[in-house]
Simulated scan of single mutants.
Amino acid sequence: MRYKIDGITIRSENAAKPCNQKSQRVDSYLCTLSAETLLDFGCGKLRYSDTLVKISPRVTFLDSLVQINREQLIRGERTTVANYIRQNYPNCQTVSYEDVKQHALKYDLITCTNVLSAIPCEKTLHDVISHICRLLKSNGVAVFVNQHRSSYFKRYKSGSRRLFGHIHKGARGYSYYGIVGQNEIEELLKNTGFRVLRSWRAGESTFTEATHA
């Protein structure tokens, strides 16, 4: 996604991390899950895609049009996210965030990993969580993973304050990084139609499982 804030452009697609920077804690947790249908909301550069296709036979990968369609390095191959999924993951599909309002398929499991911390816009943050709630089956589970601390955050503190973090100007332009802690994510979910099933910290990450209120 790209955001216009106070006259500057934030290209959040640049914040996505590649598969060789997977968190072992997050990956190990995902391996404990299973679902018939799964939506990865904010798939980025397919950081955890190899694990997700093992725990579900039908995965939908969702991100912005620019993230899905731009040519980039995906698992050592110069391609696009859409092409990589088409060629390597049978029975899986991509959906753009720009088309999410028209997407009506309901999912048993929705994962949202290190996505909310990259959203500098309060309306978009609310919309993302609302769409996840809408696309979740009545008995489904949504999983949110956020970092409650990070060594990167010290560098960003020199920038201007915004929502849960700061806007920072670097060599590649402006970027946003937020720290969405356990209390913050639980409050966001409760205000957007969710009931928190359980929430805990492990390492630098907060894991939150939720379902419909």
Results as ranks from 00 to 15, higher is better:
residue 45 K to Q: 11
residue 126 H to T: 15
residue 198 R to K: 15
residue 14 N to G: 12
residue 8 I to Q: 05
residue 47 R to Y: 04
residue 169 K to C: 12
residue 107 Y to S: 06
residue 121 C to G: 04
residue 116 L to N: 09
residue 13 E to M: 08
residue 174 Y to M: 01
residue 209 E to V: 09
residue 4 K to M: 02
residue 147 Q to T: 11
residue 205 S to D: 15
residue 165 G to V: 08
residue 126 H to R: 15
residue 57 P to A: 09
residue 35 A to E: 11
residue 162 R to K: 14
residue 153 F to K: 05
residue 154 K to V: 13
residue 78 R to P: 01
residue 160 S to Y: 10
residue 183 N to A: 14
residue 45 K to F: 06
residue 29 Y to M: 11
residue 78 R to Y: 08
residue 72 Q to Y: 00
residue 190 K to L: 14
residue 148 H to W: 14
residue 19 C to H: 10
residue 93 Q to W: 02
residue 103 H to P: 03
residue 124 T to E: 07
residue 6 D to V: 10
residue 20 N to K: 01
residue 183 N to H: 10
residue 168 H to W: 13
residue 9 T to V: 15
residue 84 Y to L: 06
residue 15 A to Y: 00
residue 135 L to S: 02
residue 180 V to A: 03
residue 68 I to C: 02
residue 112 C to I: 10
residue 123 K to F: 08
residue 99 D to E: 12
residue 117 S to E: 13
residue 15 A to K: 00
residue 146 N to Y: 03
residue 26 V to A: 07
residue 92 C to S: 12
residue 163 L to F: 10
residue 91 N to C: 12
residue 139 N to W: 05
residue 107 Y to W: 10
residue 90 P to Y: 13
residue 53 V to T: 12
residue 196 V to N: 06
residue 187 E to N: 14
residue 68 I to N: 01
residue 127 D to W: 04
residue 87 Q to S: 13
residue 60 T to A: 15
residue 80 T to E: 02
residue 194 F to D: 02
residue 70 R to Y: 03
residue 208 T to H: 09
residue 50 D to E: 15
residue 14 N to I: 08
residue 130 S to N: 07
residue 213 A to Q: 11
residue 2 R to E: 00
residue 204 E to S: 11
residue 91 N to D: 15
residue 100 V to E: 00
residue 45 K to M: 13
residue 41 F to V: 07
residue 55 I to N: 09
residue 124 T to A: 03
residue 191 N to V: 03
residue 150 S to K: 01
residue 132 I to R: 04
residue 156 Y to S: 07
residue 134 R to W: 03
residue 74 I to D: 00
residue 17 K to I: 00
residue 136 L to N: 06
residue 104 A to C: 07
residue 25 R to N: 11
residue 55 I to E: 06
residue 164 F to P: 03
residue 81 V to M: 03
residue 157 K to Q: 12
residue 50 D to K: 14
residue 151 S to D: 12
residue 20 N to E: 08
residue 100 V to H: 02
residue 188 L to D: 04
residue 207 F to C: 04
residue 41 F to W: 14
residue 162 R to T: 08
residue 19 C to Q: 02
residue 136 L to S: 02
residue 2 R to Y: 05
residue 133 C to L: 01
residue 90 P to D: 10
residue 105 L to S: 09
residue 64 S to T: 12
residue 134 R to Y: 07
residue 184 E to H: 13
residue 67 Q to W: 03
residue 162 R to S: 10
residue 68 I to D: 05
